[in-house]
Write a protein that binds this DNA or RNA. Structure first.
Lengths: 213, 213
DNA sequence: TAGATTGTTAATCGATTAACAATC
DNA sequence: TAGATTGTTAATCGATTAACAATC
């Protein structure tokens, strides 16, 4: 679970976290050849109330037509634009263990417009191998390559003990955001955007609910 | 990011999602040989206010000593108990692609007391291989093996197109909870506990914030 | 036109923060 | 005792739900 995506600029963090769901569903609906969709149907497909969806969208503008619904292509374009997906951010994964390799191969990122441009690891057996068409580089070259390849987002998939060090290097190299899978709270400058993905939370909370059934 | 862990039984879902963080930090503090910790220090280590922590804990009982703090061992035991970790749930991963293999190898689950007891895949090249000391079985045997090995939680790491089918089988086989990594909203009976882990949300929301810096 | 559906305001609900009495 | 720190109540803030006018 991604932790603490706090709101900013007046828009609720909860709203922002729902936008990717809208985007994905709109893509599916588009593939089905549909031109128009109502907040009602979108809601039914996602398990979200239509009022919630209308409110979320309305906080960014008027994208629908009263009495009609939303034009699928147009809305998808707008939501993608709001999410900044057309920036086509360059991303790099640091730590090509099982999880890092899984992330490097994750096809849904391509669908969102992200470009995987670098992979890093410090294990000599892993350096030089190719994962999803990208060669794994030595972690010591993070600073150099992040600048060269204009990497915007660093994904941290190293063991907890190394995560802070990697974060420091990524920050110094000038990435704008970090997506962190290591189970630690990292120290980064105020201006750095960081999203923590904590896999323990989902499973533990499931345990909580199971215990109380 | 884990989606929609709604509160239940009067306890806020946000509170429950913080408990695993407390648990993990207490384990670390315990390893450091510390006997006592204050809400203030716990807060500093996690980036959470001490008031929030005290409130979270207080909703389950009085675990601290005024003027002193919390006894680390005792609190860790209590938080683990609240989360139901001492149930030592049996878990199975369905879909041993990159992500499924990463989850099967995820060491943090062991630290939380979960037992990995089965792996499933439908690819004949994958069936029979061993991942993290567990043999991969044919997905067609889900129902049989879930019962045999008394699996409580099913983890879905198959492509979106197969996820609903897998969920149906897991439900029929009698699992109590599902941890779903496929990017779809699944239809399951009301009584089934399901936590959706949606990796697109974290990265997309990061894109949103980066766009507005 | 009548029916459908959005966008927006008001009401409710829930979660966090602040304050402080209790007490170790 | 004096200082520290919890547990709890009250105040604030934020997010969701309900209602409905606008309008296609």
């Amino acid at each position: 679970m991604a932790v603490k995506t706090k709101g900013q600029g007046g828009i609720s963090g909860a709203t922002i976290d729902r936008l990717p769901l809208y985007f994905r569903t709109l893509r599916l609906v588009q593939d089905e050849g549909r031109d128009i969709i109502s907040s009602d149907e979108l809601g039914r497909r996602l398990g979200i109330t239509p009022e919630q969806i209308r409110k979320d969208l309305a906080s960014f503008g008027q994208f629908g037509k009263k009495g009609v619904g939303y034009y699928v292509n147009e809305l998808k374009h707008n939501v993608g634009n709001i999410l900044g997906l057309d920036n086509h951010w360059n991303i790099a994964v640091v730590g090509i263990g099982h999880l890092g390799a899984a992330l490097a191969n994750y096809q849904n990122f391509v669908a969102l417009g992200f470009n995987l441009v670098a992979l890093f690891d410090q294990d000599p057996h892993v350096i030089g191998t190719v994962v999803n068409h990208v060669k794994v580089e030595d972690s010591r070259r993070i600073r150099e390559i992040v600048r060269q390849r204009k990497i915007h987002i660093g994904i941290i998939a190293v063991p907890a003990a190394f995560a802070q060090g990697v974060a420091d290097e990524l920050v110094e190299a000038g990435v704008q955001g970090i997506w962190n899978f290591a189970p630690i709270k990292m120290q980064v400058p105020e201006t750095m955007h960081i999203v923590n993905e904590d896999l323990s939370i989902g499973l533990s909370s499931l345990s909580y609910y199971l215990t109380r059934t």
